[in-house]
């Protein structure tokens, strides 16, 4: 009898329950379409330029909603005097391309705290002026050169993008660079690949402090509201 009464109560509760499918807010279900492009440069690299080493980088990304297509392009050149005599010269350019994922999904200004991935490639040349001495063959100097070396690597990135004023943005990107490989290093064992860093250490690290200008695209037009005839 008691069991029968419990069954009746459960049935009535189920009948009273109304299942409402809650639609997720738009901020969590952003459509993928290009909203804006952001173009910037790394001021840290420019600030650290010296007569010995110089470089530059430009950065761009396309706002697709939660995801951003990111592209970097840069160049560098350096000349070092070596402790063993002679010198090392390196100059070239590099690019990176990848995707950033914004973890701040509800920010009204579209500020970003992101993680991402990049694939990078560099083409460069290296020259080493070698000065050596040998007890049997005497001292001599000669030049060895990699005229067209190239490098490839992957990067895990993280960082911030913050809206400062109108369309002016600031941010930083920290990079963990891995799986570096070099080809064309027949005469000089590559020391530095532009955009990657010192070759042969496994993982290298990078840091950019960036200024951006954001150029928004026109918002997609909503379909016109047509009057429904009565």
């Amino acid at each position: 009898m008691v069991a029968c009464a419990q069954a009746q109560v459960t049935q009535s509760v189920e009948e009273d329950t109304v299942r409402v499918k809650v639609k997720k807010p738009d901020s969590l279900r952003e459509k993928i379409y290009p909203r804006a492009v952001r173009i910037g440069t790394d001021v840290l690299v420019l600030a650290l330029n010296t007569s010995r080493a110089s470089g530059w980088e430009v950065h761009g990304d396309v706002d697709l909603g939660r995801h951003y297509l990111a592209v970097d392009y840069g160049g560098s050149s350096r000349k070092d005097l070596l402790a063993t005599g002679g010198s090392y010269e390196n100059s070239g350019s590099f690019w990176r391309a990848g995707v950033d994922i914004n973890l701040l999904r509800k920010d009204p200004d579209r500020n970003m705290f992101f993680i991402g991935f990049r694939y990078g490639r560099a083409s460069f040349n290296e020259t080493v002026n070698v000065v050596s001495s040998d007890p049997f063959f005497g001292s001599l100097s000669y030049q060895l050169r990699n005229p067209s070396a190239s490098a490839a690597w992957g990067e895990l990135t993280t960082g911030l993008r913050v809206k400062v004023w109108k369309e002016f943005w600031m941010g930083y990107t920290a990079r963990m660079k891995f799986a570096g490989s070099v080809s064309g290093d027949d005469n000089v064992g590559t020391y530095i690949a532009p955009g990657f860093g010192i070759v042969g250490q496994g993982i290298t690290w990078g840091f950019n402090y960036q200024l951006f200008w954001r150029i928004p695209f026109a918002k997609p037009k909503k379909p016109p509201i047509t009057a429904v005839p009565k």
């Binding site: 070092d80 005097l81 070596l82 080493v128 060895l144 027949d186 005469n187 000089v188 064992g189």
Partner: peptide
């Protein structure tokens, strides 16, 4: 083949 490797400046 003669090659050279820069460890660091």
């Amino acid at each position: 083949r003669r090659k050279t490797k820069v460890v660091s400046p």
